[in-house]
């Protein structure tokens, strides 16, 4: 009994310590003066994290949109409400699927890559050598990756939703023969810039913040061994994905509850 309480206490202290360390890392990384060198580094990371994630995001978006279109059509057609397919596809993508699925894919594609990259830099003493060259790794390594992730993901989520809506229209309009004018005009009438597009953007920004933070923390504090880096990469994908899903529930309550 005493041992169990001791273990719970130890874990709680470890958790709070880790949270403190992660918070300090974020503060050190974020409070830096932007200059052209920093912007160049952010640009490079936007390419690594954002542009290189585009293929997986676009392909996944297309298929999810087509499946959504087909499933939606099958249900709506039995009520004679297939004209509402555009609304259904657009709202479910902009409010939920766009930000959430992009975040899950981003955690798997970019989050794991970030953890592995930073973890390996640490294990091969590159970060140590940077510190000894008086270059702050929080500002040189962590901050550009953080900002690049936070900037890229909302754009990726938006592109995901766009191509998925096109996938939905491809199935609904081109294949199942719903009237094109109806499909698009009903969608246009029911999608609200603030309620749907802006809230979706907020969601994906919050998810990006969490994913990149988790990924960078796990990489920076990974054990400097191959097993340590592999464990850290797995932890990034699992923790970031679960946090995204939990946060989605909380944000949905706050926005639409």
């Amino acid at each position: 009994m005493i041992n169990q309480i001791q273990r719970i206490g130890e874990r709680s202290i470890n958790f709070v310590t880790r949270l403190g360390v992660a918070g300090l890392m974020l503060v050190n990384a974020l409070f830096s003066q932007p200059n052209w060198k920093f912007l160049r580094l952010v640009g490079l990371q936007v390419y690594n994290l954002g542009v290189l994630s585009l293929p997986i995001i676009l392909v996944a978006g297309l298929f999810i949109g087509m499946v959504l279109g087909l499933q939606g059509y099958n249900v709506l057609v039995s009520y004679g409400a297939e004209q509402s397919l555009g609304t259904m596809v657009a709202l479910s993508l902009l409010r939920e699927l766009g930000p959430v699925v992009t975040a899950l894919l981003f955690a798997g594609r970019a989050g794991s890559a970030l953890t592995a990259e930073v973890g390996l830099m640490k294990a091969t003493e590159q970060i140590s050598s940077m510190e000894m060259m008086a270059v702050d790794p929080f500002k040189r390594i962590i901050a550009p990756r953080f900002w690049a992730g936070v900037l890229s993901m909302p754009v990726l989520a938006f592109m995901f939703s766009m191509i998925a809506i096109w996938g939905g229209s491809f199935v609904g309009v081109d294949w199942k023969g719903i009237d094109s004018g109806g499909f698009w005009s009903v969608m246009q009438a029911s999608v609200d810039i603030h309620q749907d597009i802006f809230y979706g953007f907020i969601k994906s920004t919050v998810f990006a913040f969490v994913i990149v933070w988790v990924a960078l923390y796990n990489g920076y504090y990974a054990k400097p061994s191959s097993a340590g880096i592999s464990e850290a990469t797995t932890r990034t994908v699992v923790n970031a994905s679960l946090m995204v899903l939990a946060l989605d529930f909380i944000l949905t309550i706050l926005m639409y509850g």
Partner: peptide
């Protein structure tokens, strides 16, 4: 970090950026 500008450390592994 100011002090480190006056220091150099040769790591055993070299720690070059690959």
């Amino acid at each position: 970090y100011q002090m480190r500008r006056k220091m150099g450390l040769l790591f055993q592994s070299g720690a070059l950026f690959p």
